[in-house]
Each structure stands twice: as C-alpha cells, then as structure tokens.
Amino acid sequence: METAVKLTAPARGLIIARMPSRVSCVALVAGAAALACNDGLRPTPQATTCPAGFRGICGTVTFRGAVPDSTQAVFVVAFATFPRSLSELFTFQPRVPTPLPLGGASALYTDTLPDGRYEWVVAVWEKQGVLTPQTAPTLLAEAGFFRDSSDTTKRGVVVVNGTGTDHVDFVIDFTNRHPVCTYFPPCP
C-alpha cells in the first residue's frame, strides 16, 4: 500500500480562492438543514380518479363471486379493435398490465394507454401456469368488460386523448368467466 504524499507550493492568489467567512459556513449548514426539512413521501389516500398528468383510463371494478383458488392474476386491458382471431388476442394495451388487487369488494385500476379509441376494455382472468400461445386458450378467460351505458349488452367505447379518462367502471364476475376458446372455438 502506498501512502506517500507530495507537497505542492501554495497556490497564487485566485479570485475564487477567497477565504469563506464564518457566516457563510453557518449559512451553508442552515441551508442544508432547511432543504432537508422539506416533505418526503406522505400517506396518500387511495385515489378514486385518474392521477394528475396521467394518460390512459381509470375506473373501479366491482368483484362478484369468490376468487378462484387457481387464480394467477386478473388484469384490465384494452383493445383498439375487438380481436378477430386468436393471433390478435395479444395486441392489447398496456403491454405490461398491472395485476388487480383482489382482497376487497372493489378496486381502482389505472391503465397507461396511448391516445386512441378502444373498443374493448376487458378484465382478463389468468389461471396459474406458464402462459404461451399454446396455453393461452385454456389459461385466459374474460371475466367482465366495460359496457355501453345506453345498451349494456354491447361493449363500451373509450377514447384517450392526452389525459386520463375516468370512470371506466364495470363488474368482474368470477362465477361467469368466458375462456378464450369461447370467442375463438373450438374449446377443448
């Protein structure tokens, strides 16, 4: 280990080399302390609307029925157009959906989405297992979707235009799930 030092001559006077005063030292410490008194994270009540600056959709899903033991996760995703084939099943947004919390009677969800028109906002129930194109028809099921308020038998359309679109609310019914193969038969 080398610990030698070299002596260098004291520098010639530089403008920036003025000796700091005692006052400036105290001010420096006081400034740091004042800065540190600023707020950090604080308890935040669960939001009921889209957060500020958010772009996408938000809403409350209400759960019906018991959560199946075989549940891997439940997501809310959006399709620009209703998928016409199994190959279009994975064109949903967001690409990495956030699993819904399943502990309560309802949950607020937020989906970050690019601007556009979405024809199908749907809750996807995922069964435990490794998801692949081959296993998707049996591991995935529709468990509810956003409905048109004027005709609840139809799918509701959502538009995202630079901000958060609120109150895209619907019911997730665990007792009435529709496997993917229901939409794209045959079912095994």
Binding site: L35, A36, N38, G40, L41, F54, G56, V96, T110, T112
Partner: peptide, 15 residues
C-alpha cells in the same frame, strides 16, 4: 415498475 401511474417518487434530501 409494475404500476407506473402510482409511482410517488420525490427528490432525496437526507441529512
């Protein structure tokens, strides 16, 4: 991040 919309980051000010 699993939930980007709910990420409450702040600046660090540690003494």
């Amino acid at each position: 991040a699993t939930n980007w919309a709910n990420d409450p980051r702040v600046a660090t000010q540690a003494l």
